[in-house]
Structure formats: C-alpha cells, structure tokens
C-alpha cells in the first residue's frame, strides 16, 4: 500500500483518487466539534487574533501547514511521568464539522482531513481548490488505530474535555481510504445515489 508523510505536497494530493488506500505518517492533530468551533470563531472569523490566543494559534499554524486534522476523540491514559498514551482512537463522524471544515482547510493550508462518514459539498469544493482530500479511517477500529500512534507530543485545550481536546500525535502507517479526492469525486455521493435509486425501486416510488 502506498504511504504518505506530512507535510504532503500538492502533487501527491493530486495523484490521489477516490478509492485509493494509503498509509499516513508524521505529525497530525486531532480536532472535533469544540475544536472546529473554536478555530473558526477565534481565528478564522476575527480581524485579529486575540493576544491570549496567539501562542496556540501560531503553534497550530506551524503544525497543520501541509498536514491533516483528525476527527477523533480518543481514550487516553496518563503515565506517572505525565506522558500520555493513546489507548483507543478511531474516527468520529465528520459531517458535524461541515459548517467549519472548508474555512479550516483554507486557513491552515491543510492537505487532508481524516474522519468517517464523509463530508458535504462545501468541503468537497475546498478539497478541489486547495488541493486536499478526505481520508476515511475505519470507524470503530480504535485499538488498531491507536497502535499506529507512536507518540503523543502535546495536548491543547484539555479544558474542552479529553475527547474534544486537540492532541498532537505522531502516527506511523495509519491506514485510510481516500473517499473524497481533489478532482471533485466523492464515493459518498456515488453510494448515496445508488442506494437512493435502489430504495425507490424497492418502495416502487419512482
């Protein structure tokens, strides 16, 4: 299986097509509902980032540039020396971030988003322009994916709670499937159209 390491180049993203399976490597950041709301409200939608939010803002700018954000709320364990371990870390449903995702992709120069369930038209458009892709992880395969997390480097916004915090992690051979590519193709749209046609047939609605 081909593998990609962050930061990912535009040509590498353009070469990916919906249906491709790849392994991801490098430093990525988790972010879900609270984190996306926070990033859009405190960074994207303001004329100037508040001084108090600057350090994290600049750190995220550095970390996410050319990297990917992972929709995940992990189960973690803290060791006595204070270091963290990912115990279970599968993807959460991505569609809840649809209102924020395109803004976040553009603002941080993301090359991808990892999640599950796929996303909508705004994100697909942002993927085409950026370019970026949507990587689908296997929902529920939490212990398996946690094994690909080599190190937990930092945690931000832990006050959001463990699932909602932004965890900076280094992954090795994280398995994902490209389900939305930078060429405007979404497997989710295709599967939904087929199932809709089949449903109409089964219910004789057409």
């Amino acid at each position: 299986m081909p593998s990609l390491t962050v930061p990912i180049a535009d040509e590498e993203i353009r070469a990916l097509h919906a249906g491709d399976t790849v392994y991801l490597n490098g430093v990525i950041v988790t972010g879900r509902d609270a984190a996306h709301k926070f990033m859009v409200e405190k960074y994207v939608k303001v004329a100037e980032v508040d001084a108090a939010e600057r350090p994290l803002h600049d750190e995220l700018k550095r970390l996410l540039n050319g990297s990917v954000i992972y929709h995940c709320g992990p189960v973690v364990r803290q060791h006595e020396d204070g270091t963290w371990e990912f115990v279970a870390a599968g993807p959460t449903t991505s569609i809840r971030e649809e209102v924020y995702q395109a803004d976040v992709i553009r603002y941080f120069n993301l090359k991808g988003v990892i999640g599950k369930g796929g996303m909508g038209a705004n994100t697909l458009r942002a993927c085409q322009e950026q370019p970026a892709v949507y990587f689908h992880a296997i929902g529920g395969a939490a212990t398996l994916i946690a094994q690909t997390v080599r190190r937990v480097l930092a945690v931000h916004k832990l006050e959001f709670g463990v699932p909602e915090a932004m965890w900076v992690i280094e992954v090795e051979n994280f398995p994902v499937v490209v389900t939305m590519d930078s060429h405007g193709v979404s497997i989710h749209d295709q599967v939904e159209a087929r199932s809709k046609a089949k449903l109409a047939e089964l219910l004789a609605l057409a």
Binding site: C72, V75, V87, A88, G90, G140, A141, T143, A146
Partner: peptide, 13 residues
C-alpha cells in the same frame, strides 16, 4: 487486538 490488550474496541464507548 482489543480483546487481547483489554482496550476499548471503539474509542466512543
């Protein structure tokens, strides 16, 4: 793996 390691099958418990 989850059974062997006694860790959650899915992080959303």
């Amino acid at each position: 793996m989850a059974r062997q390691k006694s860790t959650p099958i899915c992080q959303d418990t």
